[in-house]
Simulated assay, not measured.
Amino acid sequence: MSALPPGEYAIVEVLGHRTIIGRVEEVERFGAKLMSIEAVFNGELLDAVMIGGSSIYQFTPCSAEVAEARQPKEDWQLPPSIRAVLPVAALPAPAFDPPAFMGEAVKPPPCASCGGPEPFGECECIPF
């Protein structure tokens, strides 16, 4: 059983070589029929994006379980238009993994006063 809310789910291929997996619904906006799709990411539904019917190449209905299994695992796998509106909480924390050639260069400098391991004079040798 899927943890996703009930509804109609699909794998949708859209103009621009984008594949979006999520909960879909037909809506009318501005006098035109559109597809509202709430993309699945990290086991949750994101805010809906609207897609015009003429932009759809392929529409594959699926269950919530299939949508959950096929959802993007990394944020870079989402189409740019969806990634641009991702909540900050949904983005992975940035990690700094220095390249090997940097070696010791990424270590902070020692304390200017005593040469201790605390950087930038933040050690306890300096009275405030």
Results as ranks from 00 to 15, higher is better:
I37V: 10
I37N: 06
I37Y: 05
I37W: 04
I37T: 08
E38T: 04
E38R: 08
A39R: 12
V40Q: 07
V40F: 02
V40L: 09
F41C: 07
F41L: 04
G43Y: 00
G43R: 04
E44S: 10
E44R: 12
L45D: 04
L46Q: 13
L46P: 01
D47P: 11
A48K: 13
V49S: 15
M50K: 04
M50C: 07
M50V: 02
M50D: 14
I51R: 05
I51Y: 09
G52D: 13
G52H: 09
G52V: 05
G53S: 10
G53K: 12
G53C: 07
G53V: 12
S54E: 14
S54N: 14
S55E: 12
S55P: 07
I56S: 14
I56L: 15
I56K: 08
Y57I: 13
Y57Q: 14
Y57V: 11
Q58A: 11
Q58V: 03
Q58N: 09
Q58R: 10
Q58W: 02
F59S: 11
F59T: 01
F59V: 03
T60D: 09
T60C: 03
P61R: 08
P61W: 01
P61Q: 04
C62H: 01
C62I: 00
C62S: 08
S63G: 07
A64F: 00
A64K: 03
A64V: 02
A64I: 02
A64T: 01
E65Q: 15
E65G: 09
E65F: 05
V66E: 15
V66G: 05
V66F: 07
A67K: 02
A67L: 11
A67G: 07
A67Q: 06
E68Q: 05
E68A: 10
A69T: 12
R70Q: 14
R70H: 09
R70P: 11
Q71T: 02
Q71E: 15
Q71L: 07
P72W: 00
P72A: 06
K73C: 08
E74R: 10
E74Y: 04
E74P: 01
D75N: 12
D75Y: 10
W76P: 04
W76I: 14
W76Y: 14
W76L: 12
W76T: 15
P79K: 01
P79H: 01
P79M: 03
P80S: 05
P80G: 03
P80W: 01
S81H: 05
S81Y: 04
S81V: 05
R83E: 07
R83N: 00
A84V: 06
L86A: 11
L86W: 03
P87V: 02
P87I: 02
V88Y: 05
V88R: 06
V88M: 07
A89Q: 15
A89M: 15
A90V: 14
A90L: 13
L91H: 03
L91D: 10
L91Y: 02
P92W: 01
P92T: 03
P92N: 13
A93V: 10
A93C: 09
P94W: 08
P94Q: 09
P94Y: 07
P94T: 06
P94E: 10
F96Q: 14
D97E: 11
P98M: 15
P99N: 13
P99E: 15
A100F: 05
A100N: 05
